[in-house]
């Protein structure tokens, strides 16, 4: 079996007496799209932040591309990228200036050509000279996606990539992500509340609740196991069940 792209073992993150992530373990294989699914405060964003090396865990081990992220994150960061609608690009800078700066940070060769191609693909050509702060939610999401794809990452971490988007733009973003994954064989780990999105994009789901993974499997497998008709019903059953009824799954 090939080495997983992401290997997380017994990850714990505590803030004083509050446990944000309480002993999470999982692996993500190459080319697979995996969802971290859970309610607010389940520990999804904290897990993503630790994977990026932005947060230091209290304990546990995180390996990305076989490297220990806690010790050698600079070896893996050029091969990954991140996008979130909650992390804004500098408002005063134009879209092109923002993309140019990130392209330089990632050492992207032939930056102008690359940005022009991404702008064409993501349909943001018309807004390249507009300040990032004056874009609508959907436009910001597409620009954030362009930023995340600048270095053609092998691992893409997405925090609620279609949050606050209208159905049309949301669908367009999902199609683009599917296409990118199929074209490049990239691995995607996304945190989401959108069940339809997870059912469509992901082949593996990690259900989180109160910092623990309480269930995992394919969307179809989970729907079958809980005897439900869709993932939203599974999510609701898990979210509304009491903690003691759910044994953490290792």
């Amino acid at each position: 079996m090939p080495d997983p792209v992401i290997l997380v073992e017994n990850l714990v993150k505590r803030y004083g007496k509050t446990t944000a992530v309480g002993g999470v373990s999982f692996a993500v294989e190459r080319g697979v799209t995996t969802a971290l699914l859970g309610g607010n405060g389940a520990g999804k964003t904290t897990t993503l932040s630790i994977l990026l090396g932005v947060l230091l865990p209290t304990s546990g081990a995180v390996h990305v591309f076989g490297e220990d992220v806690l010790r050698h994150r600079y070896r893996v960061l050029p091969r990954m990228n991140f996008s979130s609608p909650y992390v804004d690009l500098p408002h005063r800078l134009t879209v092109k200036q923002n993309l140019m700066i990130y392209a330089r940070l990632y050492g992207v060769p032939r930056r102008d050509e690359h940005i022009a191609r991404l702008a064409r693909d993501l349909q943001i050509e018309a807004m390249l000279d507009r300040p990032a702060g004056r874009l609508s939610g959907g436009q910001k999401t597409r620009v954030a996606l362009a930023k995340a794809l600048l270095n053609e990452p092998e691992l893409l971490l997405l925090d609620e990539p279609t949050a606050s988007l209208d159905p049309d733009t949301g669908d367009w973003v999902r199609s683009y992500l599917e296409d990118y994954r199929d074209r490049t064989g990239a691995t995607i780990l996304l945190a989401s509340h959108n069940m339809a999105e997870v059912e469509r994009l992901c082949s593996q789901v990690l259900m989180m609740k109160e910092g623990q993974i309480v269930d995992r499997g394919s969307p179809e497998g989970l729907i079958g196991r809980y005897g439900r008709t869709n993932l939203e019903e599974v999510f609701l059953q898990i979210a509304r069940s009491r903690r003691e009824e759910l044994e953490p799954v290792s």
Binding site: N10, V12, L56, R75
Partner: peptide, 24 residues
């Protein structure tokens, strides 16, 4: 539990080499 390196240890182990392109 597996101990994790401190921030100080991580900074000392810092492998990110100086890059004029990133500074620019």
């Amino acid at each position: 539990t597996t101990p994790v390196p401190s921030h100080r240890a991580m900074r000392h182990a810092g492998e990110a080499r100086f890059s004029p392109a990133r500074v620019w």
